[in-house]
Write a protein that binds this DNA or RNA. Structure first.
Lengths: 340, 340
DNA sequence: CAGTTTTATGATACCGATATCAGGAACGGG
DNA sequence: CCCGTTCCTGATATCGGTATCATAAAACTG
């Protein structure tokens, strides 16, 4: 096999393109990265040679040499949770055509896994990082600070972000829903959430629930507060447990996942009228909640916009258009439906 | 700022680690990549220096130099479709601890976007590629062939794969469900799928539907075949349209997304008994389908196993344990429930 | 114990691109 | 028509690691 006199392996394809176009490799590089810096004639010749050879530039080499990166890392707690999808779509939409590539990873709600993934991303020298969680291991925080790259967190509005923050307040949203239910006349409002350990969003929501009760001058009744794993089955179990108790609630606020829908299905099965027997409210505007019978009252959260804005502020920083360490609150909205 | 006499920027961090540990950079490299090749004493010193400096190796440089990669690229048609989640989980599970990183991208059901993403992945010199779609642009196929890297496709068992294939047969699955419905006594079986353009899975399912009808000696009635966009609302619309027609079906097979659930919700709203007025069947074992009233008959597809096996065969090839271009059929299963 | 093999480390070249600077052509003003 | 700009192009060094080979030290062999 012919070798251009080099060492371990065959010639760089770029050299081949250069020869074919009768120019230096440097001109090929320029023609590809900034076509305006090359004369029309040579640019044409290079483009043709690229096509003829089927040349795909090596970004590893390019990024290493230029000490820049065209990759943005995104870590979500769990891709099986379709809630992250709209955010990812928002990010993708902004990144599309920006020349940046999105690299997504799933840490499965584990802080250690997140740390590993952050390490991997930093090792790839990504241009920026987007984290859905706002709690991280100490080592992870230290690494990120040392690396000094732009980071956006998007889980919840929390104090002391690593760098930038684009989200809504889980605390305020949960509080608002409880106040809303109270306004509708419900007095014993139960609260069901996902396990709060390792999940700052659940914790914030629970704090919001408590804050609302305090404002309303109501006592918190421990029997009305439940933690359940995600899934429709959990919602079903929760509603059965709560309504079977000695002092059942007249409304249940399911602060996560598809719990509320699971509860509604169980009510259908048992022919418990909703909201006659119990009112149900959910935390996220999943498509399903609009289509059930009755449709379920819930919160609309700016999922997609979080993605868009995050990508925007990140790009602004990466491309040096801004030095600001922004914190953006995108708010939320209550959607009143038949279930309450 | 001090400079080690070098060029454009500050010293490589590895050099710093090496000095601190009193060894050569090469030893640092070895200590990190293959600790067995370094004496215990030096390994300890290196590890400590790494910690002290907060050193994160540069994979760009490493991969470039070694001409290997520790990244595997995965392209899915749409992350908002939660169907891909189990597959991704399967892949992640196998890759975890293998030293390989998963890089996920979303092509939004567009062939051109897929081509761009493939280009980007090849430019990053990924070690292997996983594609959910089995149809690709010609340019994409050419690039992949030139690159000569291992590829797994997972969308459907189709003839002429690029390289390896791990899936179930959408054709056979759809056919089996139609035969099942016929066995249950239904005679006018409607078929609703997602748009078949740009979606080989939909096309295969539709072919399976036709094959089953042919086997049963039934004529295909064009009024019983519908294409709908994804989403619960589409399912609702489909059931209304089909049952409102002059010659309504007695069963509807929804071959995609959450259409069947949307249809059931609409039936609940209109108080059409299911399966009394019409039987409903779906194509995928989404959690929701088990919890509705009645629960919906559907197919269980080996989503997670597809992910696991794909990752396994890909790793086998990447790590040179196998040269085989495997094709794996993982089958499917019918789950009979109350809706039929 | 000499000779051979194995093991541990370092020096050097190189992966495939880009930053930088230098030099020649083209251009414009006086 | 000369000289200072501007525009293009290429030579060279370098990005931060790893492959390879050489070498010295340690371990084994009979």
């Amino acid at each position: 096999m012919p070798d251009d006199g080099g060492g371990r392996t065959a010639a760089s394809r770029m050299r081949e393109v250069a020869q074919r176009a009768g120019v230096s490799p440097m001109t090929v590089s320029r023609a590809l990265r900034d076509p305006t810096k090359v004369s029309d004639e040579l640019r044409r010749r290079v483009e043709e040679a690229v096509r003829a050879v089927g040349y795909v530039p090596n970004r590893l080499a390019g990024n290493l040499s230029s000490m820049r990166s065209n990759v943005i890392g995104l870590i979500v707690p769990g891709l099986n949770n379709s809630l992250y999808a709209p955010t990812i779509q928002g990010v993708s939409a902004v990144l599309r055509g920006s020349g940046f590539q999105l690299m997504i990873a799933d840490c499965g709600y584990s802080g250690e896994a997140e740390e590993e993934l952050i390490t991997a991303f930093l090792a790839q020298r990504v241009a920026g990082l987007m984290l859905h969680d706002t709690r991280h291991t100490e080592a992870a925080c230290a690494m990120i600070r040392r690396a000094g790259l732009p980071v956006v967190e998007t889980g919840t509005l929390a104090p002391g972000p690593l760098d930038m923050l684009v989200s809504y307040s889980n605390h305020d949203a949960a509080r608002a829903m409880v106040l809303h239910l109270h306004r509708l006349g419900y007095r014993r409002i139960a609260f069901v959430s996902l396990p709060a350990a390792n999940n700052d969003r659940s914790r914030e929501r629970r704090r919001g629930y408590r804050a609302a009760l305090a404002e309303l001058g109501a006592e918190e009744d421990a029997r009305l507060v439940l933690e359940m794993p995600p899934g429709l089955a959990s919602g079903a179990e929760a509603v059965v447990r709560l309504l079977g108790s000695a002092a059942p609630p007249d409304a249940i606020f399911f602060a996560g996942d598809v719990l509320a829908a699971g509860a509604l299905f169980e009510c259908q099965r048992r022919e418990w009228p909703v909201p006659g027997r119990v009112a149900l409210a959910a935390f996220d505007d999943i498509d399903m909640l609009r289509h059930t019978v009755p449709p379920i009252t819930t919160l609309r959260l700016p999922r997609e916009e979080i993605g868009r804005r995050s990508a925007e502020v990140l790009l602004d920083r990466i491309q040096g258009r801004s030095e600001e360490r922004v914190v953006v609150d995108l708010g939320f909205e209550i959607i009143q439906r038949g279930s309450t």
